[in-house]
């Protein structure tokens, strides 16, 4: 459905915006390395089923997400390392890993390796933006491209919500994926404050600056 497709393309667009920002400005300043590593972990643990992916659409997106994230991490850790300031990227990710690990171990759909890792990836993704938002809060402002990146990334999961509602009514099984939906709503709520400032400032041509 349209929400699902727009969501996935928003996710892809966010990655292109981030790569464009890094290469255009020859700098990864303002980007949280920790968040990027968390996303890498999200993709690895969620796409363990990559070799068995039957849909070409999903297969292509999975390969694109994993490879582009690897490239982003390479750029931040090697090519543009001097522009990456670890002193601003101080969020304690062990809390996020603990949160996702605990929920994955307590409430997986099934106790299989794939299911536990899948649940871990869903919960971890829901909070993986926090180091980035924390960094943004410390600097108090962001370049336009960084703001566009975070907005596109946030829109992706927000668009999955109408997708789930649409699927609930259009599919005969009326199934609700409680883990994905709960985590997806949590993820979107975490962005809400950012979305508000993005909407009131950046979309009106102003700089992204916290009050």
């Amino acid at each position: 459905n349209i929400f699902r497709v727009l969501g996935d393309f928003s996710h892809l667009a966010s990655i292109f915006i981030l790569l464009h920002k890094i290469q255009q400005l020859k700098s990864c300043s303002g980007i949280s390395f920790k968040s990027q590593v968390l996303y890498m972990l999200v993709y690895i643990t969620r796409y363990l089923d990559l070799p068995w992916t039957s849909s070409p659409y999903n297969f292509i997106f999975k390969v694109l997400f994993i490879s582009s994230e690897l490239y982003i991490i390479y750029l931040m850790a090697r090519a543009y390392k001097p522009t990456n300031d670890p002193n601003l990227d101080t969020f304690h990710v062990e809390f996020l890993l603990g949160f996702a690990g605990l929920l994955a171990l307590l409430f997986p759909y099934k106790y299989t390796i794939l299911e536990v890792f899948w649940a871990f990836s869903i919960w971890l993704e829901s909070v993986a933006i926090l180091p980035q938002l924390f960094m943004l809060q410390r600097t108090g402002e962001a370049e336009a491209m960084t703001a566009h990146y975070i907005a596109a990334l946030g829109m992706y999961r927000a668009l999955y919500i109408p997708n789930w509602i649409y699927r609930y009514f259009s599919e005969p099984t009326h199934k609700v994926d409680t883990i994905a939906v709960t985590a997806g709503i949590l993820q979107t709520i975490l962005y809400s404050d950012f979305f508000w400032i993005y909407y009131t400032k950046v979309m009106r041509g102003e700089k992204f600056k916290l009050p």
């Binding site: 999975k62 759909y109 199934k175 994926d177």
Partner: peptide, 10 residues
């Protein structure tokens, strides 16, 4: 089967 169905998302 139940668990398989939702893995059609990214």
């Amino acid at each position: 089967k139940e668990a398989k169905a939702k893995k059609d998302e990214l």
